[in-house]
Design a protein around this nucleic acid. Structure first.
Length: 1021
RNA sequence: GCGGGAGUGGUGUAACGGCAGCCACGCCAGACUUAGGAUCUGGUGCCCUAACGGGCGUGGGGGUUCGAAUCCCCCCUCCCGCACCA
């Protein structure tokens, strides 16, 4: 995962000039007409005003102090990061915990723009609030540093990706530090560190060394499967008893059960990138998500992860998570579970001697087995393996001409159709025409229920990758089948009665069965159940569940990734022969030198398997359209690394290392577990620490709490990929007993994106947003009019604004407050540099509430606050607390500004301490540096990080008198003030006695008077 | 096409079914100023009115309700995801 930074943007920034400013009139001319440069700097700024310069000083001081004191260190229960007895951290360790996490960033060389830190600031505000609210808070930020950009840079420049990566991380750390993020720096892991990827490899071994027990519905150690086979508890596939199988055969069977396995199956091969890709990394139009190269389905032997074993749990367990509805929905759709039935169609060849020769049956998957009486055809995917065995040598004598595709024989027709579907499919899918195509196979199938013979077609609208790659054509209740039936003039029979007046074609709604034999008259759900029972009873099928989810393709032919801790036994002589042959090792696990091609896991003691140094970081890439090419990973070229002598328990032997690397997702699947115990060299993380930070808390979150960290914030772009993979890995670790939590992320929050205005001139060319001026709503650039658009911030739109620019102009606190005040965290909104000043003015006012701008001395008084001020204060506390918990920082800021404005006007000569102090504390999570400084200048020592967040006094939330608006026929016409505890009848009388109300009501008859206690009085006349 | 989300001043937005527009930007006026792209104060939904005051207003249409930006139905528009998933 990891965020992508704007390509090619690098740090030197233009002078901080707001994008939209009125043109200077008469600039450069002074009174006597002589040319002067810029106006003189302000001379009347009070010496202790809160300016950008002062903010900068304060911010750097406090950042230094926080770092020096380990202010944000969160103690663990056990291990190296546990609180030492008698230390300050001991108190923290006794607090209830809170684990907050941001999505793992990818450290690009570019640098951050103002859109990137939005989520980091939000989590920081939340974490700081939680610390003040008595929590022990784990919040850190690591780096997901394996991946393509550093590798591609290395390919171009020859610089080792590690060098690039390290400097990028240093750069990004510095940028983020400037924002005052309160991270536990001890826990900031980097996926490319050997201490980290050692554990990624370790997790791979856990997955490799386990299998999914469908009876217990969990993963179990592979040794327990072997035991089941050898004890006879589980029958061996085939007829030969386990003991009589060769050890090679045994290994092959066991390997076929592992959760990580090698499979020769159709995978997404991307010649342009020189690597295979997972389904999730391929776009709808068959291109690579990265680079937009064509992707081809090819049979290659690759690493797969058996995520499909977890399909049900990955869907069902979503219910217990506090996640955004769209993300839950996207995961459900991606897994795509549907309940239906398998139906076996016997096949008959029309041209065989007696016309009834039985071939192997073809199974279809259908969600509507109840409609089988309307089946007019069997349609299979072009690449369906059964097709070739079906084809009769000649067309049946009554074959309509337009079924044959103009071919002389079924075999020709199928070959032609396959060729055409194979080459043109990607392009044709693009142009949405969706005309159904297909060709008759010359063969027939038998509808097992209706006992009717139906023709078998191949058509590319049937996908080999879903269900069984074959469908029964039922036009009456399926749009696609209707279209197909029209095209090939197949008979159309409805089996569900459409409602009166239905004039469409296929009807997919609820109704009563017709033309359906023993199902006639049954409503839909019953008919489905009845048919499944019938199929099961007569052994023509069974109820089944189908999923869209495929197993996860887990190997990549790249350099900059985690090596697999896997070797293959090789024949020494064969290796020599290979070398003299001049055959380049291709990294494909079916190398000729291999004895059996079966993977062997290295023992834990041999971890980490270090990434070797190589001369050439690039995989072999090809012309993007050349599908007939083979993957050739860079590691295969490191001959000294790939061939190793190891003693794996049976003496020193020669092995070949797996030359693939893991996909970039691997490092981000379990990073929360390393955050928990970053220095643990014995275990991924101590279960005691994991239980503390992530264990289920039924008393807090309810009986079905799966555990997991408390808040996970990141972009919605990871809704499927990262979040699905991470849940899968976590569940494997849970099944194997390594963690207490069955889910990694209890609460998920998707922050919105910051968009930016971009400006286009009359030629349609983007112009530098920095140089655009606005006057009366019209935008111009160097005198010519330009048009405003909104888009992603980036170099191509010439509209990048960096945090450094804003910090230089206003300070980090202003930047933080502005970002948090722009709107709800989850919604996307445009950046507007000129609006940032509003946040700055707020902090300036706050500063002035506490300090004298001339002397820098506190100006708060010990006078009591007015009753009204107390009420405003405590309502603010009440509201801000609720907003903080709910991540509604925009409304929290509005309330704090309101309170500040109140104090400013109510106490021009100095605010009462009892208001100023809680105000400062409430601002602290949002603008921590200024709050720390004000807190210190109010006479406190040290950081306020663990100072109690103010609590509202319940008694002050209620007022003595209440103002009721009085509505007459829905319009507010008057206001009355009554005692807060006044009876309803008193309120009613007071309202009716009000002069304005009397005037409005006049002679009319009162139909109704409603008093909503504490709210409103409504009069209906 | 299917699924999800959203439409409120010039702008970003705020409103447990109960005073629509909190807060901020911008704009207008004023203060301090040689100066303002600094700071402070006041005003600012639209329309009518000199003013008092009044009318209209949350994409459009209907409904529930004493009362709807909010709940329900239909339509329109925009954004996101999936896309021949049987």
């Amino acid at each position: 995962m990891g965020i992508e930074l704007p390509e090619g943007y690098s740090s030197p920034m233009p002078a901080p000039t707001p994008a939209t400013k009125a043109p200077e009139t008469g600039a450069g001319l002074d009174a006597d007409g002589s040319d002067t440069a810029v106006p003189l700097p302000a001379t009347d700024t009070p010496p202790h005003r809160y300016t950008a310069e002062l903010a900068d000083r304060i911010e750097r001081d406090w950042q230094e102090l926080w770092a020096a004191e380990g202010t944000f260190y969160a103690p663990n229960p056990v291990g190296e990061l546990a609180a030492e007895p008698g230390s300050e951290l001991e108190e923290r360790a006794r607090r209830p915990k809170l684990f907050v996490q941001d999505m793992f960033p990818y450290p690009s060389g570019a640098g951050l723009h103002v859109g990137h830190p939005l989520g980091y600031i939000a989590t920081d505000v939340y974490a700081r609030f939680a610390r003040m609210d008595g929590r022990n808070v784990l919040h850190t930020l690591g780096y997901d540093a394996f991946g393509l950009p550093a590798e591609q840079y290395a390919v171009q420049t020859g610089q080792h990706p590690r060098v690039t990566t390290e400097s990028n991380i240093a750069n990004m750390r510095a940028q983020l530090r400037r924002l005052g993020l309160g991270h536990d720096s001890r826990r900031s892991v980097v996926t490319t560190d050997t201490d980290y990827y050692r554990w990624t490899q370790w997790i791979f071994l856990q997955i490799f060394n386990s299998w999914y027990d469908t009876e217990q519905n969990k993963a179990r150690p592979i040794a327990e499967l072997v035991e089941q086979f050898s004890s006879g508890q589980r029958p061996t596939p085939g007829t030969v008893p386990w003991a009589e199988l060769s050890s090679q055969q045994q290994r092959s069977i066991v390997n076929g059960h592992r959760l990580a396995y090698l499979s020769e199956a159709p995978v997404n091969w991307c010649p342009g990138l020189g690597t295979v890709l997972s389904n999730e990394e391929v776009t709808a139009d068959g291109r690579s998500e990265r680079g937009n190269f064509p992707v081809f389905k090819r049979n290659l032997r690759q690493w797969m992860m058996r995520i499909t074993a977890y399909a049900d749990r990955l869907i069902d367990d979503l219910a217990a998570l506090d996640w955004p509805v769209p993300v839950v929905q996207m995961q459900r759709n991606w897994i795509g579970r549907s309940y239906g039935a398998r139906v076996d169609f016997a096949t008959v060849s029309a041209s065989s001697a007696d016309g009834t020769a039985v071939l192997p049956p073809i199974s279809v998957f259908t969600t509507r087995p109840d409609t089988i009486f309307g089946c007019n055809s069997l349609v299979v995917a072009p690449e369906h393996p059964a097709v070739d065995t079906l084809l009769p040598p000649h067309w049946p004598h009554d074959t309509p001409a337009h079924w044959t595709g103009g071919a002389a024989t079924p075999a020709d027709a199928v070959a032609m159709y396959r060729a055409q579907a194979g080459t043109a499919s990607e392009l044709e899918r693009q142009n949405d025409s969706r005309t159904k195509t297909g060709v008759f196979t010359g063969a027939y199938a038998l509808n097992p229920v209706a006992q009717v013979r139906v023709p078998i077609f191949i058509a590319d609208y049937v996908l080999m990758g879903y269900g069984s790659g074959a469908v029964m054509g039922v036009p009456g209740e399926d749009k696609r089948d209707w279209e197909f039936s029209e095209k090939f003039e197949l008979p159309i029979i409805r089996t569900v009665q459409p409602p009166e007046g239905f004039e469409g074609k296929d009807f997919e709604g609820d109704g009563v069965m017709i033309n359906s034999g023993f199902l006639n008259g049954l409503p839909w759900p019953e008919a489905k159940k009845r048919m499944i029972d019938w199929l099961t009873e007569h052994e023509h099928g069974a109820g089944t569940v189908s999923y869209k989810l495929r197993d996860w393709l887990f190997s990549r032919q790249r350099y900059w990734g985690e090596p697999f801790p896997i070797v293959y036994a090789v024949d020494d002589t064969a290796v020599k022969d290979n070398a003299t042959d001049g055959d380049a090792p291709d990294g494909n696990p079916t190398n000729r030198a291999d004895i059996d091609g079966e993977p062997i896991a290295l023992p834990e003691s041999m971890l980490p398997v270090l990434l070797p140094e190589v001369d050439d970081y690039s995989p072999v890439t090809y012309h993007p359209d050349d599908a007939d090419t083979d993957p050739a990973p860079p590691l295969a070229k490191a001959a000294e690394w790939t061939t190793v002598q190891l003693d794996l328990g049976d003496g020193l032997k020669t092995y070949r290392r797996d030359a693939n690397v893991m996909p970039q997702w691997a490092g981000s699947c379990c990073y929360q577990l390393r955050y928990i115990d970053p220095r643990n060299s014995e275990q991924l993380c101590d279960p005691v620490n994991e239980g503390y930070w992530m264990g289920p808390e039924p008393l807090v979150h309810g009986a079905d709490d799966p555990g997991g960290l408390d808040l996970y914030v990141g972009g919605v772009e990871h809704a499927v990929l990262h979040l699905l993979y991470a849940r899968f890995w976590h569940k494997v670790l849970y099944d194997l007993g390594h963690v207490h939590s069955s889910e990694p992320y209890r609460r998920l929050f998707n922050q919105g994106y910051i968009q930016a205005p971009a400006y286009v001139d009359s030629r349609g060319v983007y112009v530098l947003a920095d140089e655009v001026v606005e006057y009366s709503g019209v935008f111009s650039w160097r005198g010519q009019p330009v048009r405003r658009e909104y888009g992603k911030m980036g170099k191509s739109l010439k509209n990048v604004v960096t945090p450094e620019q804003i910090c230089a102009e206003y300070g980090a606190d202003t930047f933080r407050v502005y970002e948090m005040s722009m709107g709800p965290l989850e919604s996307s909104r445009p950046w507007e540099s000129r609006a940032v000043v509003g946040a700055h003015r707020f902090l300036q006012r706050l500063w002035r509430v506490v300090l004298d701008e001339q002397t820098g001395q506190p100006r708060v008084t010990d006078e009591p606050a007015s009753a009204q001020s107390r009420q405003v204060l405590h309502r603010t506390i009440d509201g801000v607390r609720a907003d903080m918990v709910g991540l509604r920082f925009n409304t929290a800021i509005a309330k704090l500004i309101e309170l500040t404005n109140h104090v400013t006007t109510a106490y021009p000569d100095g605010a009462p301490r009892e208001v100023a102090v809680p105000l400062v504390l409430m601002v602290a999570p949002l603008a921590p540096h200024i709050a720390e400084e004000l807190w210190r200048r109010l006479g406190n020592t040290g950081s306020l990080t663990y100072t109690d967040f103010p609590h509202a006094d319940e008694r002050l939330l209620v007022t003595e008198t209440i103002e009721y608006p009085v509505q007459i026929n829905g319009k507010v016409r008057a206001r009355i003030r009554v005692a807060a505890d006044a009876e309803e009848s008193v309120v009613r009388e007071a309202a009716l006695a009000d002069a304005k109300v009397v005037a409005y009501v006049g002679e009319k008859i009162l139909k109704k008077v409603i008093v909503v206690p504490g709210r409103i009085v409504t009069v209906v006349v």
